[in-house]
Design a protein around this nucleic acid. Structure first.
Lengths: 122, 122
DNA sequence: TCCATTTCCTTAACATGTTAATTGTTGCGA
DNA sequence: TCGCAACAATTAACATGTTAAGGAAATGGA
């Protein structure tokens, strides 16, 4: 993940914050539980990350009126812009992985890792 | 690594502390630089971990008389005992990995990971 | 001999992973 | 309606990864 972190260093956001934003950009507004799940983050981590992203103005948080225990998170235009601007680079990093291993072996690697930890993916 | 952490939880030491002890158990007394290298740890982390292990009485630290900037670390009998008592379990965890994937695929996985990050190993 | 530079470690500061304890909210049965 | 279990988030407490700044010791050259 080093190359990804390096790419992100200029944006001031971290790998995990990036992951959360990506999920929000892809699926849109969602409740915290789903977000934690799709971002592969534990709740305590998500709480902190969401707070950080909120302070940076990259996401907004809103309470569920029906069940005030719950919360929804949504990406802002600024957050979306960060994603848009760096997605191509991220893709090229993945591409370099494939290039190193070759398409065939890259698929094999993903397969083996998934077999070891089915919950991993991504 | 979850299974390893679980195994270690009863000993009160962490995954990284375990790694440092294992290296010391295998190679014996060595200077900090070499230790950091073999443990795949950055210096700041090693500084803290070594201090923790020292406080727990699992390692001892000594200054190099010729170059007093340097330091040597050595595992104690107590530390050695922890390693000895848990090495079999650790081995069985690795064995379960192999069982999940099969010997052949396990080797393939290690090979692919090494190709992505030659410095990783272990 | 003296100082700038290099080395080896240590500290600091910040973000995260993790487990456990805590604080609000809901919903339900007595 | 009251009280309590279940649930959603937070907060706390530790250990670590990381980058940057500091401090002490050693070194080479003027």
């Amino acid at each position: 993940m080093a190359p990804i972190r390096e790419m992100l260093s200029e944006t001031g956001i971290t790998e995990q914050q990036w992951r959360v934003l990506r999920v929000l950009a892809e699926f849109g507004r969602m409740d915290t539980k789903t977000l934690a799940d799709r971002s592969s983050l534990l709740f305590p981590s998500l709480t902190r990350i969401a707070a950080t992203l909120r302070d940076k103005g990259l996401v907004t948080q809103t309470r569920d009126d029906k069940d005030r225990r719950r919360q929804f998170v949504e990406i802002t235009a600024v957050g979306q812009r960060i994603i848009d601007e760096h997605t191509p680079q991220a893709a090229s990093i993945v591409a370099s992985f494939k290039k190193t291993l070759g398409e065939q072996d890259y698929e094999t690697l993903l397969d083996l890792l998934t077999r070891l930890d089915p919950g991993a993916k991504d």
